[in-house]
Amino acid sequence: MTAAMTLTPNQTETLVRKLTALADDEIILAHRDGEWTGHAPILEEDIALANIAQDELGHAGMYLELRRELDGSDPDRLAFFRDVDGFTNVRLVELPKGDWAFTMLRQYLFDAYEALWLDAARASTYAPLTEVAAKAVREEKFHLQHTALWVERLALGTDESHRRTQNALNELWPYTAQLFQPVQDEEGLVEAGILPDLAGVRGRWEALVVPHLTQKCGLMLPAASAAAAAGRDTHTEHLAPLLAEMQSVARAVPNAEVW
């Protein structure tokens, strides 16, 4: 509340941009996870993925509350009434859910990034972000345990499960680079100690996931592709149909007060 007073207008604008990007990643990934509800391979996993999606939405809610403190915006309006051009999620999270290996591997790659980003964000000089990071990182570690185990199980399971996991890695790996691309002017907030340095987070992320994927799980890392040049304002054709479904109820009854 009072911490907002110490930010310059440019810092505020950049922080709003970053908080929105963080929230958008969570919202879109949670929706993709939610698409498995009623369709997961076994009941326990149906429940687990719904739990994970719920946590991610909880994190999105916290980021958007921080944004509300800065610019007075309404989290529900942002989630349900922005069009595809307004969303700033990474393309990794909007790809269709694919098979179980694809969903688990994507969640694993994202969870590891999120857990390490949050871990670093606990040292933020912006107290409201420090508080949110300290809260969310405790939840994220359970996601990471769960999805790391699934990646192992699938990669070391049968020939078929290994083949599918390798295919998923081949498709997903090039998309992970975008997780570590800063938003416009982010470096200023890194210098001020408000946001973690993404290069540092990337180093820790690679040190965690690369040995796990290659040595423990026996998967082959695809050759690094050219870095994704396009920013968070560029999406695949898959985001618009997702939003159409996700936002349909809110838009059909825009004045609803009780859900």
């Binding site: 687990a48 946590d55 939840e139």
Partner: peptide, 13 residues
């Protein structure tokens, strides 16, 4: 552990 997520966010099975 049969499920790392349970019927509520705070529990496992």
């Amino acid at each position: 552990m049969t499920a790392s997520f349970g019927p509520t966010l705070c529990k496992r099975l």
